[in-house]
């Protein structure tokens, strides 16, 4: 059934909304368009220490794009042809850049206590993203198909067997590791990074310690913040 011709718009504040309507209302309340795509940032963001997050995202985009090229063309291309070897190498070097920018971003956020002002989940998703990225990079080293990857796999299998997960995460099974490296882990890293960025949009960029008075979220007391959460705010 439709509501066409009834002449009534759904009541945004009422309880009669469907789950899609309730989801829309919740999302728009948490993340209105002007927060999702802001046209300006606070003046303290004009600092080099704030560029490493987007640097990590740019590196991740290149990592995924070059990885798609590698997987579509296969090892007969990226182990032999000049262009293939270039893309293969740039895939590695963009991973190096991804980790370097991510680590500097991590240092910067750690020393400005970026979890302040209700931003704990933003910090936690960053930590999870870092951990999952390490596993993704590890599976990449296993796919070099050379003596180096063989050595790494046979060292790692003992550790993974010792903690009881070797039967499910078998580092000497090349096909399984391909599945982890080119499907599951990139999806996980991409999803967590996207959620991390959305949380930054929801809560705003954390200010330096000396600019704390300029941040609306830091001016909220713990009581006000818990009241906001109890009224339907989960992020």
């Amino acid at each position: 059934m439709t509501s066409r011709g009834s002449g009534r718009e759904p009541q945004e504040s009422g309880a009669g909304l469907s789950w899609t309507g309730r989801s829309r209302r919740w999302l728009l309340k948490r993340l209105p368009p002007e927060k999702l795509l802001p046209e300006g940032q606070p003046s303290y963001v004009a600092s080099w220490i704030y560029v490493f997050g987007i640097g990590a995202i740019a590196s991740l985009i290149y990592v995924i794009a070059s990885g798609i090229l590698l997987s579509l063309n296969g090892p007969a291309w990226y182990h032999v042809s000049g262009l293939g070897r270039f893309v293969n190498s740039s895939h590695l070097w963009s991973v190096e850049l991804f980790f370097m920018t991510m680590v500097v971003h991590l240092w910067g956020k750690y020393w400005m206590a970026a979890w302040r002002g209700g931003r704990v989940l933003t910090w936690v998703t960053g930590v999870i993203s870092f951990a999952v990225s390490i596993v993704a990079a590890f599976t990449g080293y296993l796919l070099q198909t050379n003596f180096d990857s063989q050595w790494i796999a046979f060292q790692a299998k003992d550790a993974l067997n010792a903690v009881g997960i070797g039967a499910w995460f078998n580092v000497v099974n090349l096909g399984q590791i391909f599945m982890w490296h080119i499907v599951l882990l990139p999806l996980a890293v991409g999803a967590i990074a996207a959620f991390h960025v959305l949380l930054v949009r929801v809560h705003g960029v954390v200010p330096p310690l000396e600019a704390a008075e300029s941040d609306a979220q830091l001016q909220l007391t713990d009581r006000e913040r818990s009241d906001t959460k109890s009224q339907g705010g989960g992020l």
Binding site: W48, M100, W107, G108
Partner: peptide
Amino acid sequence: VMLVIFGLALAL
């Protein structure tokens, strides 16, 4: 290199 970049990001 990461330490140098971190220092430069704070100083420059």
